[in-house]
């Protein structure tokens, strides 16, 4: 009866646009490149994207609370280095995991303290800690060759086959699900979204916005640390600058998933869909023989297209709903 309203409800639904885009691209590659849909290939390429998926969840959380954590990529790299170094020193898998996650959490605490405590611009602060983390990894790899551990238990963390996939993929999926539940169904999640929508109203409503923001940065840093552990465990080797540019991919994924840069709007699973979309694009292009160097350009373009398309689609949905409402209550245009 009212196609406009139905359409507007569809495109207004969070995550619908990116889910459709992901399906379309996936189907396109599955048809044009026969190897693409092979189970072994899919498993391999998802395993390769695990670190990106984890830090996309992290960066989405900090964007939703009204900030941004650009340091996730570099912190992930440093945590991977520290974790592998710990394992190579013969300390066993548990201390190695703790060292990696702890490094990430430490950066999260520092980011949170500076941004919340000193009220400095989150974008620039995390750009600064990005450099600190990336630089520390250069220093670390300059002193010790992080070329692999003999500890099989450490390597097994991400590589063990389980349920048809690997433990690394399962851990990343669990992180995404937990983060989604945290944001959607807990008091803390509601506080995060309220803070992102507006610090002042949230404060008036009795939310300790500083604490909420601080905790988000700690979670974000810890997730980056976990992502680093998974990366180091799967590759069993860490080089400097290995994760440079990851933050750009994570921002692009979150933005494509409809996470609003203004804060408060968007969800974790939509952002993860955005990351999978970019991953599909990258793997498909690789199988098609497109120069992988073009992908940095595509990531940058995706950010701009995502921001602009998200707003235009929303405007369109609002306009169509308004038109239909006017029509249904008999107001002339």
């Amino acid at each position: 009866m009212m196609p406009g309203r139905r359409f507007s409800r569809l495109i207004g639904t969070d995550g619908a646009a990116i889910a459709i885009a992901l399906l379309l691209v996936g189907a396109l590659f599955a048809v044009t490149v026969p190897e693409f849909a092979a189970v072994g290939n899919l498993r391999y390429f998802v395993a390769e994207e695990v670190p990106i998926l984890v830090i996309t969840a992290a960066i989405a959380l900090t964007i939703i609370v009204g900030g941004i954590d650009l340091s996730v990529g570099a912190v992930l790299g440093l945590s991977a280095g520290v974790s592998l170094w710990t394992s190579m020193s013969g300390l066993g898998p548990v201390p190695s995991v703790l060292a990696g996650v702890g490094t990430g959490a430490l950066f999260g605490v520092v980011n949170g303290l500076i941004i919340v405590g000193l009220r400095l611009n989150d974008f620039i602060v995390t750009l600064g800690t990005l450099n600190v983390a990336a630089g520390l990894l250069v220093v670390l790899t300059g002193r010790i060759q992080l070329t692999g551990t003999d500890d099989d238990a450490y390597v097994a963390i991400a590589r063990t086959p389980l349920l048809g996939v690997t433990t690394g993929i399962l851990i990343a999926a669990a992180v995404a699900v937990l983060m989604h539940l945290l944001l959607r169904y807990t008091t803390f999640g509601r506080r995060v979204r309220a803070t992102g929508l507006g610090v002042e109203p949230a404060r008036v409503a009795g939310i300790d916005t500083g604490r909420v923001k601080f905790l988000c940065y700690v979670v974000s840093g810890s997730l980056a640390g976990l992502g680093g552990v998974l990366l180091a465990s799967r590759l069993n080797s860490v080089q400097a600058a290995m994760t440079s540019g990851y933050e750009l991919t994570a921002v692009a994924a979150a933005v494509l998933g409809g996470v609003s840069l203004a804060g408060g709007r968007g969800g974790i699973w939509q952002a993860v869909l955005g990351a999978l979309f970019l991953a599909t694009l990258r793997q498909g292009f690789r199988l098609l023989g497109v120069d992988p160097m073009i992908f940095a350009m595509i990531t940058g373009l995706c950010i701009i297209v995502g921001v602009v398309a998200d707003r235009s689609l929303r405007d369109l949905a609002n306009r169509l709903t308004l038109r239909d409402t006017r029509r249904s209550i008999g107001v002339a245009q």
């Binding site: 500076i114 000193l118 600064g128 800690t129 600190v132 300059g142």
Partner: peptide, 16 residues
Amino acid sequence: SWQTVLTGAVLIGALL
């Protein structure tokens, strides 16, 4: 290699 670390720290210090 400490230069990158320092530049990041200087940025935050300058802001502060």
